[in-house]
Amino acid sequence: NQESVVAAQLIPINTALTLVMMTTRVVSPTGIPAEDIPRLISMQVNQVVPMGTTLMPDMVKGYA
């Protein structure tokens, strides 16, 4: 089963992602794949992401 990127903390809107903000977990439905974490660093979220929420492609500016 593929791991997806999950918020390790509350991420406010327009925050640039850092490694410490993200963790990985096997979730359903699947979100952004864990191997894309290096690509996500410094990208901004376009909404508030509560802790434990799976990051979906449409939540990250410039990802999709």
Rank of each mutant, 00 (worst) to 15 (best):
L17P: 02
L55C: 02
M59W: 15
L17I: 06
A64F: 03
V27M: 07
V60P: 00
N1K: 04
E35Y: 06
I41T: 09
A16L: 04
T54S: 06
M21P: 00
V20F: 11
N14I: 03
N46K: 15
I41L: 14
Q44P: 07
V5D: 00
V6R: 02
S4D: 01
N14F: 11
V27A: 14
I41E: 06
V27S: 09
I11H: 00
G52E: 09
L17M: 08
M51D: 10
P33E: 10
T15R: 05
A16R: 06
Q44E: 07
A34T: 08
G62A: 14
L55S: 01
V26N: 12
P12W: 14
D36Q: 15
D58N: 15
L10P: 07
N1R: 03
I41P: 03
L19T: 08
G31N: 01
V48I: 13
N46M: 07
I11C: 02
V26L: 13
I11P: 00
T54E: 02
M43L: 12
S42M: 07
P57I: 06
I41A: 06
V5P: 01
V49Y: 01
V5Y: 02
I11K: 01
L40W: 02
T15P: 00
P38I: 09
Q44G: 04
P29Q: 11
P50D: 12
V45G: 00
L55N: 01
V6W: 02
M21Q: 03
P33K: 07
V49Q: 01
V49L: 08
V5M: 02
G31W: 03
L19Y: 14
T15S: 05
T23C: 05
N1P: 15
V45D: 00
Q47M: 10
P50K: 14
N14C: 08
M21E: 02
L10M: 12
A64P: 10
L10K: 07
T53S: 13
D58T: 15
P38C: 05
Y63S: 04
A16M: 15
A8S: 10
R39A: 06
M56D: 10
P33T: 14
T15E: 04
D36V: 12
P50G: 11
A64T: 15
A64D: 06
V26S: 13
P33M: 10
R25P: 01
A8P: 01
R39M: 09
A8N: 09
S4F: 04
L10W: 15
I37C: 04
N14Y: 07
E3F: 11
D58A: 15
L19N: 07
L19V: 07
T53N: 10
P12L: 08
V5A: 10
M51P: 06
M51T: 04
R25A: 15
S28H: 04
